[in-house]
């Protein structure tokens, strides 16, 4: 049975697209059939972060409007064969996404894939609502920063009221993914701690992705971070997050870069 997962946040720039790419690739790297779907009509970027920007022929709106078949619009990843991307339209009006059309495409995607991961646009408007409407699970991407936490709270409220599952009186599994986390600053009291965010939002924690140079490097290269540097701290955070999505019970940790002897000694002396 396919699972539909929405990656959402309310606030822009917190790492939805990066996380969609990384989670999608990490799931596909375990052999699961995964499609990542860009719902950000007019401002698509998932194709760019995934390195597929030169290969886009058709998009989600073409499929929704019946101008192209789903199979024609899906772009198969060149690195992981079980990973596909369905790009958003760059030019069309976002009103071209009709609820019925999206429902039809989602049904078709459910048949083809194990995981359907929807990258939500920022905001709480139509695009964000359509992206979350069919979700069975949600990953709420949050930065340890006041405006991000507030917007996440708003999005959690929407997940519980405006989605198909909510309307049927069913539960939607919500997970918190804390990104751009700096454990040192949190320890010094300069940044909201994980416990603070969890207490405020009170949804279970899926993972903590530390602030890392590797994330920018991955997007520069057009390669999800779990592929560009699987041993890096953010990649390990995403791999762990994916294991939790698959139901494994793991203790939450903040992955750190594996550094040389000097760093190790330095860390010891600080601890």
């Amino acid at each position: 049975m396919a699972k539909v997962l929405v990656v959402t946040s309310g606030k822009g720039g917190v790492g939805k697209t990066t996380s969609t790419a990384a989670l999608g690739a990490a799931l596909a790297q375990t052999g699961k059939n995964v499609v990542v779907v860009d719902f950000d009509v007019g401002l698509r970027n998932l194709d760019l972060v995934m390195g597929a920007e030169r290969r886009v022929v058709f998009d989600l709106i073409n499929v929704v409007q019946g101008d192209a078949k789903l199979a024609q619009a899906l772009i198969r990843d060149k690195r992981v064969e079980t990973l596909s991307i369905l790009p958003a339209s760059q030019t069309r009006d976002k009103d071209a996404l009709t609820p019925e059309g999206v429902a039809r495409v989602m049904d078709e995607l459910r048949e083809k894939f194990d995981w359907v991961i929807c990258d939500s646009p920022a905001g709480i408007e139509r695009g964000a609502q359509l992206a979350m409407y069919h979700a069975d699970q949600a990953v709420v991407v949050t930065n340890p920063e006041v405006s991000s936490v507030r917007d996440s709270d708003r999005i959690i409220g929407m997940l519980d009221s405006t989605t198909e599952r909510a309307k049927k009186g069913e539960k939607i599994d919500k997970h918190l993914l804390l990104t751009r986390y700096d454990p040192a600053r949190a320890a010094r009291g300069e940044m909201l701690r994980t416990e603070d965010v969890l207490e405020i939002l009170s949804i279970p924690l899926l993972g903590i992705v530390p602030e890392s140079e590797e994330v920018l490097r991955a997007s520069n290269l057009g390669t999800p971070v779990t592929l560009s540097n699987p041993n890096s701290a953010p990649a390990r955070a995403y791999f762990e997050a994916v294991r939790r999505l698959e139901g494994e019970k793991l203790d939450i940790s903040v992955p750190t870069e594996r550094k040389g002897l000097f760093d190790w000694l330095f860390k010891r002396s600080v601890a």
Binding site: E53, R54, R55, V56, V57, F58, A68, K69, A71, Q72
Partner: peptide, 10 residues
């Protein structure tokens, strides 16, 4: 239409 595959590389 199912039998048409279009690939692009810009």
């Amino acid at each position: 239409q199912d039998k048409v595959q279009v690939k692009m590389d810009r």
